[in-house]
Amino acid sequence: MKIIYAKKSSGIDEQGSFQNPSYYDKPSPSAKAVVIYGDYPQIKADYEKLGIEVEVRDLPEAKPLTIDLKVGISPELQVIIDEAKAECEKVTAENTILAEQLATAQGELIAFKNDIPAMQARIDELQPADKKPTAAEVKAAKAEQAKE
């Protein structure tokens, strides 16, 4: 039996019993020939003591893999990208406006800090206008007055 010691069997084109040299503990006396891929002097010495032919080989070099990809953007994807860019620009513009409004509000707060009447006037200005009562509210109020 031919024993082949190698970390990986890929790329090795020969027949035999593949063994991982990391798990080697003693030689197999049933071996007729031994091939070792890599530098494992203890394995070689053990088999030579038994008089078994040992051949040490360099690991086969991996062949480089080249892939040529031609990737393009589909029209559907381009539409989505364009929409996303437009949305980003819109949000950026809104953020700029909000930052300006915040700066203005902070300036007003500082200006009104010690001017309570001016601050109250601004608060009143920002309050929503009184809403007109709904027809149901008017009807309920009239019914309440009629009971009294």
Results as ranks from 00 to 15, higher is better:
Met1Arg: 12
Lys2Glu: 01
Lys2Phe: 03
Lys2Asn: 01
Ile4Gln: 06
Ala6Gly: 03
Lys7Phe: 07
Lys8Arg: 14
Lys8Cys: 02
Ser9Tyr: 06
Ser10Phe: 15
Gly11Cys: 05
Ile12Val: 09
Asp13Ser: 11
Asp13Phe: 10
Glu14Asn: 07
Glu14Tyr: 08
Glu14Arg: 14
Gln15Arg: 04
Gln15Leu: 07
Gly16Gln: 09
Phe18Ser: 01
Asn20Ser: 03
Asn20Cys: 00
Ser22Tyr: 12
Tyr23Arg: 14
Tyr23Lys: 15
Tyr24Trp: 09
Asp25Pro: 04
Ser28Ala: 15
Ser30Ile: 10
Ala31His: 06
Ala31Gln: 04
Ala31Cys: 02
Ala33Ile: 12
Val34Phe: 03
Val34Glu: 02
Val35Leu: 04
Ile36Val: 15
Gly38Trp: 04
Asp39Gly: 08
Tyr40Met: 06
Gln42Arg: 15
Gln42Val: 13
Tyr47His: 04
Lys49Ser: 10
Lys49Trp: 05
Lys49Gly: 07
Leu50Gln: 10
Leu50Thr: 01
Leu50Trp: 09
Leu50Ser: 08
Leu50Pro: 06
Gly51Ala: 02
Gly51Met: 09
Gly51Val: 03
Ile52Phe: 08
Ile52Glu: 04
Glu55Ala: 13
Val56Tyr: 04
Arg57Val: 02
Arg57Ile: 01
Arg57Thr: 02
Arg57Gly: 00
Asp58Phe: 02
Asp58Cys: 00
Leu59Arg: 11
Ala62Gln: 12
Lys63Arg: 14
Lys63Phe: 05
Pro64Ala: 15
Thr66Ser: 13
Thr66Met: 12
Leu69His: 07
Lys70Glu: 02
Val71Ser: 11
Val71Phe: 03
Val71Gly: 05
Ile73Arg: 09
Ile73Trp: 10
Ile73Asp: 05
Ser74Met: 11
Leu77Val: 05
Leu77Tyr: 03
Leu77Lys: 13
Leu77Trp: 01
Gln78Phe: 02
Ile80Tyr: 06
Ile80Leu: 13
Ile80Asn: 00
Asp82Thr: 00
Ala84Asn: 13
Lys85Val: 12
Ala86Ile: 00
Cys88Pro: 02
Cys88Thr: 12
Glu89Arg: 14
Glu89Pro: 00
Glu89Lys: 15
Lys90Asp: 00
Lys90Phe: 07
Thr92Arg: 10
Glu94Met: 12
Ile97Glu: 13
Ile97Tyr: 04
Ile97Asn: 05
Leu98Asp: 11
Leu98Gly: 01
Glu100Gly: 11
Glu100Cys: 01
Leu102Cys: 00
Ala103Cys: 05
Ala103Phe: 06
Thr104Leu: 15
Ala105Met: 12
Gln106Glu: 11
Gly107Thr: 10
Gly107His: 13
Gly107Glu: 11
Glu108Ala: 14
Leu109Cys: 15
Leu109Asp: 11
Ile110His: 01
Ile110Thr: 14
Ala111Leu: 05
Lys113Asn: 09
Asn114Val: 01
Ile116Trp: 10
Ile116Lys: 15
Ile116Leu: 15
Met119Leu: 13
Ala121Phe: 05
Asp124Arg: 15
Glu125Ser: 11
Glu125Asn: 14
Leu126His: 09
Gln127Pro: 00
Pro128Phe: 10
Pro128Ala: 14
Asp130Trp: 12
Asp130His: 07
Lys131Val: 08
Lys132Asp: 05
Pro133Tyr: 09
Pro133Gln: 06
Ala135Lys: 10
Ala135Val: 14
Ala136Gly: 09
Val138His: 09
Lys139Met: 09
Lys139Cys: 03
Ala141Asn: 12
Lys142Val: 08
Ala143Glu: 12
Glu144Pro: 00
Glu144Cys: 00
Gln145Ser: 08
Ala146Glu: 08
Lys147Asn: 03
